[in-house]
């Protein structure tokens, strides 16, 4: 039983950590801020999910579960909302897009109806 629990902890922690690392790498490597936001919002969310579940399995008390659930719910709501806010204000600030971007319908619409 303890061996299973340890293996589960290790698997969860390692997957969470690797997604966190990939997310950080994505912020370095991807070409423009929108792509970096993709990496930041998705990888951090799943990475924290893995890490928190690993911590819960390892600690194994109800207190750990409730705190981890609270943190998880907060992260799943906050990470996408934060990236929406950032993408929105970056677009409003006229952020340069990657030169291979095909079309930008948001800029088209704002051109049609001048911003109030």
């Amino acid at each position: 039983m303890d061996a299973i629990r340890e293996i589960a902890t290790v698997v969860l922690l390692v997957s969470g950590l690797s997604f966190m690392l990939i997310g950080a790498w994505g912020t370095v490597r991807l070409p423009d801020a929108y792509h970096r936001l993709h990496a930041a919002s998705k990888c951090s969310t799943l990475g924290l999910l893995g890490l928190l579940l690993g911590a819960v399995v390892h600690i194994g008390t109800a207190a750990a579960l409730s705190k981890a659930l609270l943190t998880l719910v907060f992260t799943f709501v906050a990470a996408p909302v934060g990236s929406h806010m950032l993408a929105r204000s970056a677009h409003a600030a006229g952020l340069e897009q990657w030169d291979r971007t095909l079309s930008d319908e948001l800029a088209e619409d704002q051109g049609d109806h001048p911003e109030d």
């Binding site: 912020t27 801020a33 936001l37 951090s44 934060g82 990236s83 204000s89």
Partner: peptide, 11 residues
């Protein structure tokens, strides 16, 4: 851009 820095801070 400032947005890049802020997003780095988020991560």
């Amino acid at each position: 851009h400032v947005a890049d820095r802020v997003l780095a801070g988020d991560v």
